[in-house]
């Protein structure tokens, strides 16, 4: 475990039956770094992201977050997860609660804040995503883009050091994508460590410190946006970029 890194992944393997989806991944993420993961569907990038907070159990290898190895059964995964925010493709807001309750649930239940503090914090994050007036609304009354921004606020309310985004704009109508990306850009500017699985190449180009190209369960190529987008070294990368950029 290297103290310089916020997230350190070592030789991570994951299979579903005989199908190996991750074939020994190594990746280090420094504090404040924004890493965008791109690649064809089925290349393993989402599975990799879900291994970082143990939503998927790795078969072997190590994932260190803040110095805790999540593969170690001695480590209390619930504690580690409190420091890893996650945003899902389908938002996954709790439909049985209001927007405000969605955000205050975890901080209050986990004893991080009193009810009053949590409410204050919730309004702060709702301001950040521009949805203060929706605090008492039911999630089902919001548009997809609004729901995703609430989901981001919900994750932020736990004051995580790392944020994981799993294709956060894939399920959105095109006109909603901009608002969500704007929120993410602001987060990046404020120095949040972020790992983002995305198909938004423009966002990756503009915001990422590093772009990681996944292919067939492995990292084929990585580097600065310029390196990967403008001077791709690997044939697979070129093919992929040809397909997504020249539509």
């Amino acid at each position: 475990m290297d103290k310089r890194y916020k997230v350190q992944v070592k030789d991570l393997h994951k299979s579903y039956g005989s199908n190996e989806v991750l074939k020994g991944i190594n990746l280090n993420v420094k504090p404040n770094e924004v890493v965008c993961m791109i690649g064809p569907s089925g290349s393993g990038k989402s599975t990799f992201l879900r291994c970082i907070n143990k939503l998927e159990e790795p078969n072997s290898g190590h994932v260190y977050v803040d110095g805790y190895d999540i593969a170690d059964p001695q480590v209390d995964i619930n504690k580690v997860r409190q420091n890893i925010g996650m945003v899902f493709q389908h938002f996954n807001l709790f439909p049985n609660m209001t927007v405000l309750q969605n955000i205050t649930l975890a901080p209050v239940q986990l004893g991080k804040m009193s009810k009053e503090e949590a409410k204050k914090a919730a309004y702060h994050y709702l301001d950040l995503v521009g949805l203060r007036e929706k605090a008492d609304a039911n999630p089902s009354k919001l548009s997809g883009g609004q729901q995703q921004r609430v989901a981001i606020a919900r994750a932020l309310a736990m004051k995580p050091d790392v944020m994981l985004f799993d294709e956060p704009t894939s399920a959105l109508d095109p006109e909603m994508v901009g608002d969500v990306l704007e929120v993410m850009k602001n987060l990046a500017k404020q120095g949040m460590t972020m790992i983002v699985v995305t198909h938004e190449m423009g966002f990756a180009k503009q915001v990422a410190d590093r772009v990681v190209f996944f292919h067939d369960g492995d990292i084929r190529e990585q580097g600065t946006p310029e390196e990967v987008f403008d001077h791709p070294q690997h044939e697979d990368t070129k093919n992929f970029l040809d397909k997504v950029l020249n539509v």
Binding site: F88, N92, A106, A151
Partner: peptide, 10 residues
């Protein structure tokens, strides 16, 4: 719903 709840640390 499980994943969202568990990922918050619940």
């Amino acid at each position: 719903q499980w994943e969202a709840a568990r990922s918050l640390g619940l």
